[in-house]
Write a protein that binds this DNA or RNA. Structure first.
Lengths: 128, 128
DNA sequence: AATAAATTACGAAATTCTTCGTATTATTAA
DNA sequence: TTAATAATACGAAGAATTTCGTAATTTATT
């Protein structure tokens, strides 16, 4: 099991996932589009993340270039499992119903989800 | 929007949801079935939760009796929305797919979810 | 080469959450 | 009524996270 990133680690991972390998300066600029953060704050978190192996860095040039060490799906899975256990007591269908029920999903989303369910049902039929 | 409980606040809410209004002693006993926690630790968290209005208490008797101030579904919704935003960038169908895809849902769960989707589709058809 | 500019390294302050010790107050039992 | 028991109140220590100031280092400019 991969470890659970903190809130601000997650913010930075999102930026790296979206915009690819970046320097601290570039990440900090992106962060400051959303909220005010000091440069050394961002640097520090990224150094900590490197220690934790949440990212890797290329120190060839003066400005180190950081890359995420985890795929979005890995972190999403870890985080969702955590919520499933701690908030939903492991009741997966309740979680899904909450996710679908509160805000109406778009027609497009609905299609995707139905397709997935059908695929899962085929797999289940195969077993039965 | 209701506020996001901390991890240990969540533990206590789960116990109250399951076993109804309880004293600190009763909550602490339940907690200690899972892990070792001191009595005053539990007391303190429950006092903080009362200040935050995550729970209410009846101080009539010497042993105060605490009740949750939020329904499970309210907290689940808050927490899930938070994960949706911070981990999934608001992509609801991706969240649902992660939830369904990683571990095969049981036949029973599948039925529930399909029924919900059909109900939501009817609502959508009505609008179109 | 000397100065300025930009970056990393380091450490510590600030914040939030968790944990618990001690004091106080209330109840029960002897 | 006094002593023992059990509860709450209070505050502070500990731990994890976030924030940033300052020093050291590297690169670019004059």
């Amino acid at each position: 099991m991969t470890l659970k990133p903190t809130e601000s680690e997650l913010e930075i991972l999102q930026i790296l996932w979206e915009f690819g390998p970046l320097t601290v300066r570039q990440v900090n600029d992106r962060l400051n589009e959303q909220r005010r953060v000091g440069y050394t704050t961002t640097l520090k978190i990224m150094q900590i993340m490197t220690d934790k192996e949440l990212m890797t860095r290329d120190t060839e040039n003066r400005s180190h270039v950081y890359s995420p060490a985890l795929q979005p799906a890995e972190v999403q899975s870890t985080m969702l499992d955590h919520v499933l256990r701690t908030v939903f007591k492991g009741d997966r269908s309740n979680l899904v119903m909450q996710a679908l029920g509160n805000h109406a999903a778009s027609v497009e989303e609905m299609k995707e989800i139905k397709a997935l369910i059908e695929k899962l049902e085929e797999k289940q039929d195969g077993v039965l």
